[in-house]
Structures are given as structure tokens and as C-alpha cells.
Design a binder for these strands. Structure first.
Length: 468
DNA sequence: TGAAATGTTGGGGCG
DNA sequence: ACGCCCCAACATTTC
């Protein structure tokens, strides 16, 4: 072992140098430092990234490398099984310590635990940190150690349990320990689409990386937080934080957001409202922690008998491409396809439409979102789909069926969101645009592919068959 | 973080 | 002034 031994910081879902406890600990106590990211596509460890997420990951890794170079380091890229690659890099670097921020899926925890044990057995120092969640899922429990099944009780208990830790300072410099280590070229990972290259809209809409994330947070706090409570529901406005993909890849930490919201001068209920959205993220992770198969298995087992419609590729394709004839649904699905993101309210409407008007299994919708969302998150995406389906924990009751026309009149009254995303309807004015069926000028726009009233009734009948 | 059906109330038009 | 009807507005129930 070399005289001056180094440490490895294993980056996973924490692609930032700000408020990164693992990186901070390595720099403070164990220089020189090797920064490592491993592309491990073994599905038994973690769900492989979908297409839009791969695009984001490519740029996020480049951004992290830049940030590390800025402070004197660089990011080493390797691919393969983490269980083999991590020990290999440790040997090559002659490191005797490893630092990482924790992951929460079953396969991830198993892998991390096994690595921690085997590396410690070899005499290495291995330390893990809370970098991704405000509250570790095993710390927010009821008296019998089980997890909470109701969001409000969960969030109350979490907030009462402790304040989230302080943010740790952005390192100004590091002593790079990667000399002589090979790194893959990120381009060789082929994370970007080739043909067709559908990423143009993503590049227009997004700027991956922690600097853009911090900038957006500051802008939001200065300009948008005050009106968040109302504006967040109107998809035509930029009333939401749009931090979701940055959070997904850990380009910003929830701790950073939590503390800056608390320090903001904005009064009223908006700050609390925003924090409760972070709370839903924590809640979803606590469900994921206890239900590893959350994207595959109904949490409520009675939904296993739900009479979903036989596979209907035509309806599925109409939904995916935004050709359902329901303007708000189509606007949302096109925003998703073009930008890799959809406004939260419209996610609820489009999901409700797929599940309850088309009677298509929520898992098909969840998979589509997984492939097309830049913020596709193993906990949030699945838990939110189960929320809409009614099969989840503290989910919306199944009979809560969104009417896409009513929702559109209520939350996009002027039709600005629809007009922006559905070109065929761009000439239509407000009342007509919500139900353009016989409106003049709605060229080439499809008739609704289903009768809302009829399919709603059918969904309720279907649900009645699985009720005790 | 729902919508539709059903029930209730009260004001206004009208004979 | 009264009864009757209509209907909007709101409340409650149901899915």
C-alpha cells in the first residue's frame, strides 16, 4: 500500500459537490480523493435508467466532472458490476477508505451492505452518509416500528423527530488522487439518443447540473415562492420549482432546499406547502424502502384482481402521443414527450385518464413515464402512479376520477397551456378549446377516443368487482 | 390533490 | 299578499 493512502468517494444519486457529506468527509479527513461514478445496469440492483433519464445522466456526469475539475479533481467513470468495479478501483488507487451517500432500494442496500462488509474485512474504512433524504426511512416509524401509512401522520412525525442536518459547505479544493487511473469517456456509454435524436426539446428545456439547480432554487425563492400555493396548480404558469430532475440525480439536496426555504422571508402558508412536497418525496421513499416492488406490485393486494382491459395498443399509443382528443391530456403528454417533464397537476389528470377512462393497468403508464421523464424516480414515479390508481398507501380513493375537461376549465381557464402544446388547437379561444369537438378551426384534431361519462361509469363498475 | 347526483334554500317572475 | 314554479347557489351524499 502506498505511503500516502487515498480515499474513494463513490457517487451514485448525489451528483453534486455542494452539501455532499460523503465528499466533504473524504476531503476533510482522507485526502487525496478519487471521485468515482459506476454505470451499473444490473436490474437486480437498481432499475436501469429510462431514455430521458439517460440523457440527463450524460449531462449531469459532465457537469459533475466540471465542478470537480474546478476544485482540482476529476470524475472517474467506469462501467460494470459495482461489486467488482468498486474494489478494483480501490486497489488501483491504493485507497484505504471509501465514502458514499446512502441508497434506499432493496437491491441497492443489499449491495452496499455486502460491499461495506467485504471492504471492512479487508481493513478499509467505509463510511456512509445521509445525503439524499431529510429523514432516513428507518427513523420515521410508529411505536411498533412499522412505517406510516398516512402521509400527514408521517410528515408530522418526521418533522417532530428532528431537524434535518445542516448543509455541509461546498469544498473549495481537493487533492486529486486519480493520477494514473483510467476513466471511460462518457460518450462511449451511449446515454444520448442517436436515431431518432429526440433530445432536442430536452436540451431546450433543461440545463442539467448543480449550478443550474442552485440558480433555479434561488430564482424560485425570490420570485415564485410567495404565490406557490395557487400558482403551482396552473400548468400554464411556471409556478412550480421544476427542481425535480435536479433532485432525482442529487444535483441539489433536499437539505439545501429545506434550509433556504426556512431562511426565506416569504410569509403565509406557501413555504410550508413547498416543504410538504418535499415531505411527499420522503413519504414515497419510506414506502419504497418497505415495498421494493413498488413499481410492479399493487401495495393493496385486492388490486391484483382488478379487471384491466385487454391490451389495447391503439389506445395506449393515442395516450402516449397525445392524440386522445382530450385537450388537457394531449397537452400534457406532448409536453412530456417534448421536454421530458410534465406539470404535476397534469400528471394526475393524464394518469387518471389512462387508468380510469382507458382502464389500462397503471403499470403501463408508470413504465412510459419511467422512459420519458427526466425526473423518473424509482420511489416517486411508482408511488404517485399507485396514488392515482388507488392501489397505494394513503392513495386517492379509486372513485376519485378526474374529468379532463373540468380540470382543464378549472386550472387552465384561458387555455394557454393547451394552446402552447397542441398546435392544432392554437387558434381556438377559451371556452371552445376545452371541448373542441365541433369547434371551427380544430383541424385534424381527433374526436375524444372515449366517452368520459360512459367510461367513468365502467371504471366504477370494474372497481366494484374487487371490493369486498 | 374529484365529480356527479341528489337535496335544500331562497330570490324573483308571474298569475 | 299569496302560491307556484323555476333555477341558481350551496350543501350533502354517493361513487
Amino acid at each position: 500500500m502506498p505511503e500516502k493512502s487515498s480515499s474513494v468517494v463513490w457517487f451514485r444519486n448525489d451528483l453534486r459537490i455542494d452539501d455532499n457529506p460523503a465528499l466533504r468527509a473524504a476531503i476533510d479527513h482522507h485526502q487525496p480523493v478519487v471521485a468515482l461514478y459506476i454505470l451499473d445496469e444490473d436490474p437486480s440492483v437498481a432499475r436501469p435508467h429510462g431514455g430521458a433519464s439517460r440523457w440527463w445522466l450524460h449531462h449531469s456526469l459532465q457537469a459533475l466532472d466540471e465542478r470537480l475539475r474546478h476544485i482540482g479533481g476529476r470524475l472517474i467513470l467506469r462501467s460494470g458490476s459495482s461489486a467488482e468495479v468498486l474494489p478494483k478501483v480501490i486497489r488501483e488507487a491504493g485507497a484505504d477508505a471509501v465514502f458514499w451517500n446512502r441508497r434506499y432500494g432493496r437491491g441497492e442496500r443489499d449491495q452496499d451492505a455486502a460491499l461495506k462488509k467485504s471492504l471492512r474485512d479487508e481493513g478499509l474504512e467505509v463510511t456512509s452518509f445521509a445525503g439524499t433524504l431529510l429523514y432516513e426511512p428507518w427513523t420515521v416509524t410508529k411505536d411498533d416500528d412499522s412505517g406510516y401509512a398516512v402521509f400527514s401522520a408521517f410528515w408530522r412525525a418526521a418533522q417532530a423527530s428532528a431537524h434535518p442536518r445542516e448543509v455541509v459547505a461546498t469544498p473549495r479544493s481537493l487533492d486529486d488522487g486519480s493520477t494514473g487511473l483510467d476513466s471511460d469517456d462518457v460518450a462511449s456509454w451511449k446515454l444520448l439518443p442517436t436515431e431518432p435524436d429526440w433530445a432536442g426539446g430536452l436540451a431546450e428545456a433543461w440545463d442539467p447540473g448543480e449550478q443550474a439547480a442552485l440558480k433555479r432554487l434561488r430564482e424560485f425563492l425570490a420570485n415564485d415562492l410567495a404565490d406557490y400555493g395557487e400558482a403551482r396548480d396552473r400548468p400554464a404558469e411556471d409556478g412550480t420549482t421544476r427542481l425535480s430532475p435536479h433532485l432525482r440525480f442529487g444535483e441539489i439536496s433536499p437539505h439545501r432546499i429545506w434550509h433556504e426555504v426556512h431562511e426565506s422571508k416569504v410569509g403565509g402558508s406557501a413555504p410550508e406547502r413547498l416543504l410538504s412536497e418535499l415531505g411527499w418525496r420522503e413519504f414515497n421513499y419510506s414506502l419504497y424502502y418497505r415495498h421494493d416492488k413498488i413499481s410492479e406490485a399493487n401495495i393493496k393486494p385486492e388490486f391484483d384482481d382488478f379487471p384491466w382491459k385487454k391490451p389495447d395498443p391503439e389506445a395506449m399509443r393515442a395516450w402516449q402521443k397525445g392524440r386522445t382528443g382530450l385537450p388537457l391530456v394531449d397537452a400534457g403528454m406532448r409536453q412530456l414527450w417534448r421536454t421530458g417533464w410534465m406539470h404535476n397537476r397534469v400528471r394526475m389528470v393524464t394518469a387518471s385518464f389512462l387508468i380510469k377512462n382507458l382502464l389500462i393497468d397503471w403499470r403501463e403508464g408508470e413504465q412510459w413515464f419511467w422512459d420519458t421523464l427526466v425526473d423518473a424516480d424509482p420511489a416517486n414515479n411508482a408511488a404517485n402512479w399507485q396514488w392515482v390508481a388507488g392501489s397505494g398507501v394513503d392513495a386517492a380513493p379509486f372513485f376519485r376520477v378526474f374529468n379532463p375537461v373540468t380540470q382543464s376549465k378549472k386550472f387552465d381557464p384561458a387555455g394557454a397551456y393547451i394552446r402552447h402544446w397542441v398546435e392544432e388547437l392554437a387558434e381556438l379561444e377559451a371556452p371552445a378549446i376545452h371541448e373542441p369537438t365541433d369547434a371551427l378551426g380544430a383541424e385534424e384534431y381527433p374526436e375524444p377516443i372515449v366517452d368520459l361519462k360512459k367510461t367513468r361509469a365502467e371504471a366504477l363498475d370494474a372497481f366494484a368487482t374487487i371490493k369486498r
